[in-house]
Amino acid sequence: MDLKQIFRTPNPIIGVVHLMPLPTSPRWGGSLRAIVDRAEQEATALAAGGVDGIIVENFFDAPFPKDQVDPAVVSAMTVVIQRLQSLVTVPIGINVLRNDARSAIAIASCVEAPFIRVNVWTGAMVTDQGVIEGKAHELMRYRRELGSDVKIFADVLVKHARPLGTPNLTTAVQDTIERGLADAVIFSGWATGSPPDLQDLELASSAAQDTPVFIGSGATWENIPQLMQAADGVIVSSSLKRQGKRDNPIDPIRVSRFVEAARRSVTLKHSQPSETQPVQQVRA
């Protein structure tokens, strides 16, 4: 997949808009207008700061259902995303947590969003929602049914989860791409705000070959120069918020600082000879 088809750059920086609690979630506050207002502020701050794309997700709906959200969540997310599309020109993707890829691709197809993120695409992961099994076979058929070309950005060994068994990281990446047909893969640390291990990230990138690999968590302006050497793009959220705290709104100054550091790291990456490929490892 050529990332420039979506982002106009081969090394995109994707910021995240964490929606405030949506209807039917435990902390729903009763005002969709307030949710839209906060989302507008954050998307505008991200776009003004120079990100190449945005992902909208129902982050504050926790605790999440395992694989199917309420229709009210789908409706609310559709309303918010359409509003953001009228405000910013960067491409907007969708992640319906915890793992409702069917709703995500349905929303994306209707609002013409170019990509979605799916936490568990292949394999099975033990999570705080229970065991989540990937449903790539169902979603790829549903995408075809919809006549859609929405791209699938799929996590490999996703954060806040543990795999059943002890999979080989190379095999997990290859299965996600070759058997699950993901368009891009995402590799994270163990939790929100936790960066991936650099050696594991290098291994994932090596296994992915020509398929784009995104850093999925824990990127900051301090560590992005190292992490970006082993990835094609980055998805970033917590470090862009005021005081670096995930419950706070986006801080435009932190966005600009991160984007500047990431851009420098990409320039450095392309100016240096490639590193020796890492040896194969097993990630527990």
Rank of each mutant, 00 (worst) to 15 (best):
A261R: 01
D2P: 15
R98Y: 06
A62K: 15
V236S: 08
V150D: 01
S194T: 14
Q243N: 15
A231T: 08
S103P: 00
A231K: 12
A47R: 09
E178M: 11
D70C: 09
P91W: 08
S217E: 09
V80G: 06
H137P: 00
S265G: 07
A204W: 06
D37S: 11
R117H: 09
G53Y: 04
I14L: 05
V126M: 13
F115I: 09
R264A: 13
N168V: 15
A106Y: 00
E133F: 14
V74D: 00
L198K: 14
Q82L: 08
V156S: 10
D37H: 04
Q229F: 08
G49R: 01
D149Q: 06
L201T: 10
L227P: 15
S148Y: 00
P252Y: 03
K66D: 13
V120P: 13
K159W: 10
G216T: 08
K66Y: 12
S274D: 13
V88E: 07
A182G: 06
I116R: 03
A219M: 14
F187H: 12
E57C: 12
A204F: 07
L19G: 04
E260P: 00
A101C: 02
R242Q: 14
P163E: 06
G15N: 01
I14Q: 02
E222Y: 15
T89K: 12
G189M: 13
G216I: 11
A261L: 04
N11Y: 07
R257N: 04
D149M: 01
R263L: 05
F153G: 04
